[in-house]
Amino acid sequence: MSPILSISNVSKTYTSGLQALKRVDLEINRGEIFALLGPNGAGKSTLINIVCGIVTPSTGKIVADGHDIQKDYRQARFKIALVPQELATDAFETVATSVRLSRGLFGRPVDPALIEKVLRSLTLWEKRNDKIMTLSGGMKRRVMIAKALAHEPKILFLDEPTAGVDVELRKDMWNLVRQLRDAGVTIILTTHYIEEAEEMADRVGVISKGELILVEEKTVLMQKLGKKQLTLQLQEPLKTVPPELADWNLVLKSDGSVLEYTYDGKAERTGIPSLLRRMTDIGVAFKDLNTHQSSLEDIFVSLVSERK
């Protein structure tokens, strides 16, 4: 099946001279939930804003559901909705007025029943006649989501939908995203929370310093993330890993004074007790040990350094 969104060779240099994106290529599959991860300033929002028409790309081509986003901007944008990272609302207007405006802007006829459905799904129905400025921050974010859903998009961008949102609302949001996916909407979201990507995404992309450094099925990435490391500070440095310990695929570091064992932290048997027993048997003594789980941050760092 052809991708619903194809981004090729997209770069962006802001007028300040800062290069925010470097030749990004990415294809999004129809109906998937794609999570874009990356540290602050990596270029996630820039990429999303380019696809949505808010930022002009310096190079590259983007096709959304068969329509070039620049040449056929109407048809392309007709299918795309965005919930931006920053809270920006029509503070002096009511929830309903603001949501109706969105629907009209995106070329859809007035449909009170649909607006009611959207507002109810975000528990905003009771607030529909309230001015947006009287709502809490979390409520305002829901209004922004309602505005995006009011025009029934096929492709939905959520730029950090759960930033500054309490646990309960976050769960609600996850459910909503799944419902949308089940209804056939393709969703691209950004997040800093690895558990969010783990919970929701089908695929994950990692972006760092403007480069898309990894695109992977979530399950594969989670395996990498599940890896833990055991570090053993040896009494006496070793020249090589003793053949008796070959089963554990150990790595010798710091001029032979450190042994490192990588294992699956989620596995039933880690292999640690047997390793330590064997080491005692053959007389390799250690003075200290610690274990360490690679975080998303570590993965970023190792991916970035691998590329250098």
Binding site: R74, A81, E86, D90, A91, L101, F106, K147
Partner: peptide
């Protein structure tokens, strides 16, 4: 005003000439 509050994002992303 939309430029000031940031709600202009919606206009810029809308299929409107």
């Amino acid at each position: 005003f939309p430029k000031f509050t940031g709600t202009i994002y919606e206009l810029l992303s809308a299929p409107i000439s």
